[in-house]
Nucleic acid binder design. Sequence first.
DNA 1: CAGGGATCGT
DNA 2: ACGATCC
Length: 660
Amino acid sequence: MALGDNEGEPPLSDDDIDWTDESADIAASQPADCRDAEGQPQKVILHFDLDCFYAQVEMIRNPALWNLPLAVHQKYFIVTCNYLARELGVTKRMMATEARSKCPELVLLNGEDLTPYREISYKVTELLESFCPLVERLGLDENFVDITELVEKKLKKVPLPSDVSVNGHIYNQQALDTMAPDHHRLALGSHIAAEFRAAVHTQLGLTGCAGIASSKVLAKLVSGTFRPNQQTTLLPESSAQLMCGLIHVRAIPSVGRSTAMRLQALGIHSVVDLQRCPLPTLEKELGGICARRIHCLSLGIDPLPVTPRGPPQSLSDEDSFKKVSTEVEVMQKVKELVSSLLHRLHRDGRVPRTMRLTIKRFSESSQPVSRESRQCPLPTTLGQKIRSGSWDAVTPLVSLAMKLFFRLVDRHMPFHITLISVCFTNLQLCCLGTRGSIVSFFSQGSPVKPKEAPSAGSSGPTCQQGALDTSGNQDVQEASLVASAPLQQRSAPSPPPGVDPSVFWELPEEIQRELRSSAASAPVPDCPGSTASSAPRLGLGQHASREASSPAVLRPPSLALRTLANQTQSLNPSLNSPVHEVPSHVDPQVFVELPTELQGELLAEWKRETRTPPSTPPSTPPSQTLPSPKRGWSRPSKGKKLNPSNRTQVNNLLRYFKPC
DNA sequence: CAGGGATCGT
DNA sequence: ACGATCC
């Protein structure tokens, strides 16, 4: 809104806003009114980017992988790999065969099933949300957080800029001017970022990079400056350098291949070219909206606020293949997709009103293979079956999907397709049957538009729930790091007190909701690491369950979640102990193929025998001390014992591994 | 390009 | 229904 007018000059637009004395006022005296409809305080945006996410998830699921070169592939190419693999020449987007030949010891895991990644991804987002409600997901491994309010809160506690320093790197090694209010804010932001990263690491076992800056573009672009597992703060005076350092316009987020080619037609290649291009010229080629947007972005200005998106608006599943050319094959694939989606839908709790089927046709000579799709409404009667979770819905859905398929493909002609995708959209919190309590639960808001996120108004006050803030004497640090329950209510349900969580989470969503709402008033005793949700204030936008949501960050994994996620992390405590090395005579490839329980036993056995895990793992992920993820996740000592038959299996395998 | 998602705009 | 974009 407040942008676009100042085109003349390079990025340093923060200087245009005369907010210095205002912020001085804020720092000195806080008449509680730090925001103004117009001269709002400079934003502090955090971009958080997990390091090689899929690989990290796999290492968490199976700690035996921890110090092995690891790559995750989908079909024929590598989607991500850990840093050990990178040292050996493996890169993203490399063909799996090439990776394998370049690095024979590489452990290659299939990452086509996104379930475990999705699950952990949402845990990260929810953890961030527990500190600050304004979190926007970007893909599975990135989050923006608008930490302006947290910074302002800290500012009131530490108004003296004197001994403030930046945590982590400063872009371009620019000197920090502790007297400059914007520097002061960003410096405080860097400490918040460090706390977030520490929390994500200790609670979820994941490392990542953070960028701290005054806008989303800048935060995102600066976050990768030092990787992995480091953070970088951008001070306003260096933003021009950051932007101009980008050689290709493609480096600007939201400038994709197509836009880049159109810019190229205008002779625009570099970011500086784009900055200098007269707006009217751009508008002619790209249209007004897009032109203004990318022009702003090229200057490091990003008017779009951090916008929490709530639960996903569609659920889809797809599979690609070399060739499918018969009706039977299609039906088989469709059935698999529909079944898995039903599973997800059931956990989500919403009911789809629309189904879409998408295919990709085989094309010679790699023409631009675009996708084609057909969609149809779903009868509400089907909705009932979907929600019931019974398998009854599969057959009608498959037959509906096949009808869509034959609107795309002439069944009398030979065909050759290479992809099928099924997507459920128009997800609705439907009336949940006849139970009064449940109906009233949802009838508060308009059932029609689950449009979501009342908290995220773009121009309004950014964080009005601050009313709940325990404004006592809390140390900002603690208040933000130790589960700040009040802010948590937006999307994270939790089991009611007195209910065994492992049972609770097995129940259907609607039953969970009923239990939760009936237990609403009882305050949950504060057990460490578990956040209590307050009364179910699920208005129109408040969705009770997000896919794969976990209510409390430290909640022990439910049986259901572990099963669904195909979690390989064993209940066996020995797997959580820092034994990360398989003996040299063991082929890691063979080892990692084994069932996890067996791996755990083997590791324990080796540990017992050698008495020493002699070489403590040379380097954990950079600079970190303990490789022990999820102390909090593993179930308390009650861990299942292996039964005798497993035991003998293990012994047999030991014999197999050991040449004796 | 490749994979398996998701969102938005037209 | 499709294209573009992001990861």
